[in-house]
Amino acid sequence: MLKRFSFVILIVCGVLFLFAGSRVLHTDRPQNDNEPVKEEVVNNQNESITPKASNKRTAKEQKVDEASKIYSSRYEIDRTKGKTVVLTFDAGADGSRLPEILDILSENHVKATFFLTGPFCERYPNLVKKITAYGFEVGNHSYAHKDMTTMSNEAIREDILKAQEIIIRTTGQDPRPWFRPPYGARDDRVREVLKSLGYETVYWTIDSLDWEDNMTVEREKNRIYNNLKDGSIILLHIGSKTTPIILSEMIKYFIGKGYRVTDLSGALR
Rank of each mutant, 00 (worst) to 15 (best):
G82E: 09
E39R: 15
R191T: 05
I77A: 14
M148E: 02
N44A: 13
E107V: 01
D90V: 11
M215K: 13
F115G: 07
E137W: 05
I104T: 12
P177H: 10
S48L: 09
I234E: 10
G95S: 10
D210R: 11
Y124S: 03
S232P: 04
I206E: 09
I246G: 01
N126S: 07
N34L: 13
R189D: 02
E154G: 01
K3N: 09
K241H: 02
F136N: 03
I101V: 15
G21F: 04
K195A: 14
G172Y: 05
M148N: 03
F89H: 11
E154Q: 13
V202Y: 00
G118E: 05
G95F: 07
L18D: 06
F254I: 10
N214V: 07
M250P: 02
T262K: 14
V190D: 03
L10Q: 02
D78A: 11
K221N: 07
S22T: 13
G198D: 02
C121E: 01
M151F: 02
N126F: 06
P181V: 09
E66G: 04
T242E: 14
D207K: 02
E47F: 00
T201D: 07
I234P: 07
I101G: 05
A155R: 10
V37F: 01
K195D: 02
D90W: 05
T113Q: 08
V37P: 00
T205Y: 07
I245E: 11
I70C: 12
Q31N: 10
R186N: 05
E192P: 01
T242A: 14
S196K: 04
P30I: 08
F136C: 04
R223V: 00
Y124T: 07
D103M: 08
D230G: 11
D147M: 10
Y183Q: 09
L16A: 11
K69V: 09
S22R: 15
E249S: 06
E158K: 13
V261T: 12
Y253H: 12
Y253W: 07
F179T: 02
I168E: 05
D103L: 09
M148G: 04
L116I: 11
L127Y: 10
L247S: 06
V37I: 14
D187H: 04
L228Q: 08
S72G: 15
E212R: 13
R269D: 14
R74Q: 13
E220L: 12
R260K: 15
S106Q: 05
N108R: 08
V41G: 00
R74P: 00
D174I: 12
G258F: 12
R157W: 00
K252P: 00
L236Q: 04
D263W: 03
R186C: 01
V128Y: 06
R97L: 08
A112R: 03
Y134P: 05
R180D: 01
S142I: 00
L228W: 09
T113K: 11
R223C: 01
K56P: 00
V64W: 06
V85T: 13
T201S: 15
P99G: 14
S208C: 06
D207I: 04
Y225N: 06
P177D: 14
V193E: 15
M250Y: 02
E200N: 14
D159M: 10
S265K: 13
A155K: 14
I206A: 14
A93P: 02
D94I: 10
P30V: 07
L87I: 10
F179Q: 02
F136G: 06
T80R: 15
Y143K: 14
S265D: 06
